[in-house]
């Protein structure tokens, strides 16, 4: 009767996606997980460095890079697009830094200038060469994760690994996880105290550009699945949720990956139920998880506060504990 919200059927929403022949939905769930996990890991460091907006900037400004690479390569060669997007991402970082350091314009304003101009350039290029560019603007903005299972299957020695975007995203996620583990201490100290990093012989600006390069690669690989706008949510939501749950970086990184898995699976089911954009549903699921953790945290805070008032602060946590320990 109400067509706005389709009727809920457990069989259709929770069972069919996993039992469907061909396993299309499994690839969609995996793609969603890899995208959110890779974005979330990099996003954690963006949040810690108060650079959340830079993720927004790079996700938009890779557009002209992709279009120019497309025009030069004259095909949807993914390698060319990858390089183009990476170059555009690097250019954005350099523009932001240059405006910020060589003028009185503050960093947030510099970000606003850099990415909107580059995005506008991309829009102009698309409309100028619309006839030659087989790029769907809608796809650029929102992505189409539902098409992922239809892509060409990667085979190694006859063994089908999976659709190309999923395999590529899995590789990117693996590399990001590896880099985060290998360069844990460099990333940690240059995020917490860049001045100290320099005095320890750690090149903070090299770490910065490395992180930006990683961000560009992640954003570009996530692009066709979730688009330029939703990728921003995937950069920030997992890390923000994890930061509410833990005050230790390694645990936060683990919780980020858990958040990614949960929002991919829940989002898939939500998308199937409402018959809507699955990438959008994954972001909504991630937001739901964030709100859940936030509200639970508020309840816990009230509980601790009222119990402190009654018992007179025996356990740790409150402000009074802080005052006690300073003497």
């Amino acid at each position: 009767m109400n067509e706005l919200i389709p009727a809920f059927s457990f069989q259709r929403v929770f069972v069919e996606p996993w039992t469907q022949p061909g396993g299309g939905f499994i690839w969609i769930a995996l793609m969603g997980f890899f995208v959110t996990a890779a974005c979330g890991l990099v996003g954690n460091y963006l949040i810690l460095r108060r650079m959340a907006l830079v993720g927004d900037a790079i996700s938009h400004s890779v557009l002209p890079g992709i279009v120019i690479a497309f025009l030069l390569a004259k095909s949807r060669n993914s390698m060319a697009m990858f390089v183009g997007a990476l170059a555009a991402g690097g250019l954005t970082t350099v523009i932001i830094e240059t405006i910020h350091k060589r003028s009185r314009v503050k960093q947030d304003a510099a970000i606003g200038i850099a990415f909107t101009s580059l995005f506008a350039l991309g829009v102009i290029l698309i409309s100028l060469f619309a006839s030659k560019v087989d790029l769907d603007q809608e796809c650029v903005l929102y992505g189409e994760i539902a098409f992922v299972p239809l892509e060409e299957i990667v085979r190694i020695g006859g063994l089908g690994l999976g659709p190309l975007p999923v395999v590529r995203m899995a590789a990117v996620t693996l590399v990001v996880a590896l880099l985060v583990i290998l360069f844990y201490k460099e990333l940690l100290v240059s995020s917490f105290d860049p001045a100290l990093a320099v005095s320890l012989g750690i090149n903070s600006s090299l770490v910065h550009y490395g992180l930006m390069a990683m961000l560009s690669v992640v954003v570009v690989s996530a692009f066709e699945a979730v688009g330029a706008i939703l990728v921003v949510a995937m950069l920030i939501l997992p890390g923000a949720t994890a930061s509410l749950l833990s005050q230790r970086l390694p645990l936060m990184l683990g919780l980020t990956v858990l958040h990614a898995a949960l929002s991919a699976v829940l989002g898939l089911h939500l998308g199937v139920w409402l018959n809507c954009s699955i990438a959008g549903a994954m972001v909504v699921a991630g937001t739901g998880l964030f709100c859940l953790v936030w509200v639970a945290g508020l309840f816990k805070w009230y509980a601790v506060r009222s119990s402190n008032r009654v018992v007179g602060n025996k356990s740790g946590g409150g402000v009074s504990d802080l005052l006690n320990s300073s003497t």
């Binding site: 201490k185 460099e186 995020s191 917490f192 105290d193 320890l200 750690i202 930061s243 230790r248 936060m252």
Partner: peptide, 15 residues
């Protein structure tokens, strides 16, 4: 920042 007192002091050893 999500680090412990120990983590911060260990940073002094990174060099």
């Amino acid at each position: 920042f999500p680090v412990s007192v120990m983590d911060v002091v260990l940073m002094g050893r990174y060099g």
